[in-house]
Design a protein around this nucleic acid. Structure first.
Lengths: 236, 236
DNA sequence: ACGTGGATGTGTATTTTCTACGCAATCTTA
DNA sequence: TAAGATTGCGTAGAAAATACACATCCACGT
């Protein structure tokens, strides 16, 4: 930003400082072999009974990431989960109350660990594929974050954040198939993941399954963090 | 007591609408086999004589993308160039004038087509690798956009936006080598690009080169636009 | 007790892509 | 006209992605 504009007439400056900034969180979970998103019923009369993302105004003196963390924690009790800023939506008329620019985040949570705090509002996990109409421009934001997630999981193993600590390769594959909406070959998927050497074999087995139980693994976060961000396959 | 609380509440609400939003443009160009970025000397006393990105406050009633377009056009005369929103920076103290949240964009322009409008300010193309200290948090923003660009060019052929309409494969390779800061094999690079079938052989040759002239190509934007966004190599 | 169903765990062959080079052709300049 | 530098093309080997077969294990029903 150029200072010239900041130093313009004071009245102008006041106009410029009349915007509000909010954060909106697309909170993804995984349950029942489906990718889900946490939504809340809008209490704005303009969007009565429509579902909306979890968000809030950014407070004066509050960092953007902190605001997103606060929203997540206040609704799910969770913190220190995977979260990433995605894009900022600034449509002039996107909010009935005035010019509200919103910074969109998505986060990946273990749906079992989330302790939903309803505060009287209706809070619900929705299958992502079943969400259509939403309040504000939230459907657009959801779509944008979902695309980012798809892109992310094929580059880096972030899917683990959606799973329980212990999981089988089948569960992991179901997760990828659900997110990417593709069918994957079981054996190649297994080879691919085991060759990354990021899974720790727990020498445990599934329980309570009506068939041969699978081995359980956990993700090796330490090794992943140590390892340099892998060189992306440039191709040329 | 009661009224005091109400007043406090009102003040709070007003505080929420006391932020300013700006856009900052990382304008990339390519010249002399170097990736360059267009910077301007800051005239803010806090950052006297330091280089900063081109940006401006988002006006009331102005879309974010429109603000970025306006900044680009006002300084370079260019419009309808490749531009992408990257990330939003909201550090509480990032601007001396108050809480200014900035949305970062990067754009790719043909440096020859840019007609710099100096307005008395110092405007200059800097080699990206030679930029170190900058005003505000602009170095961080530049780095972030540069990383995004690196990521982008290995996924989609956007580099053409930095080149003249007619170019040789050598120039194209120099571009990629400069952006990615790698050395590429000449023959494999050629094969890779020709196999994409996005280059149109113009049956023309370079001129004024002290060696065998290379064939000139142009990018086939029509074919690229028609073609679906290629399925990213999932790998599993 | 035993076979069946369904899912797990491992291996191998094929295809495709990436990578590493060799060499002739072309143009400029000495 | 030879030397130097760069372009343009092709081929062989390595690595990765893909396709596919089969044996093993556990729960359950008869």
């Amino acid at each position: 930003m150029q200072s010239k504009n900041v130093n313009a007439h004071l009245t102008e400056i006041r106009d410029y400082f009349k915007m509000a900034v909010s954060v909106d969180c697309v909170i993804f979970g995984f349950d029942n072999d489906e990718l889900k998103v946490l939504l809340i019923k809008s209490d704005l009369k303009e969007y009565k009974d429509m579902w909306s993302l979890l968000g809030d105004i950014v407070r004066p003196g509050e960092e953007l990431d902190a605001a997103a963390d606060r929203v997540l924690k206040s609704r799910t009790g969770l913190d220190q989960v995977f979260m990433e800023q995605v894009q900022t939506f600034g449509g002039v008329h996107r909010h009935p109350a005035g010019r509200v620019i919103t910074v969109a985040y998505y986060s990946l949570v273990n749906i079992q660990h989330a302790a939903l705090k309803k505060h009287g509002n209706e809070l619900h996990w929705h299958p992502v594929k079943a969400v259509h109409e939403m309040a504000f421009d939230h459907k657009e934001i959801l779509d944008c974050c979902y695309e980012r997630l798809k892109h992310k999981v094929i580059e880096q193993p972030v899917g683990f954040n959606l799973l329980p600590r212990k999981f089988s390769l089948r569960e992991l594959q179901n997760l990828y198939e659900a997110i990417l909406d593709v069918k994957l070959d079981r054996r190649n998927f297994r080879k691919k993941f085991l060759s990354m050497d990021l899974l720790v074999d727990l020498n445990e087995e599934e329980d309570d399954v009506p068939h041969r139980p699978a081995r359980l693994y956990k993700f090796n976060f330490e090794k992943y963090d140590q390892r340099k961000k892998r060189y992306l396959g440039i191709g040329f």
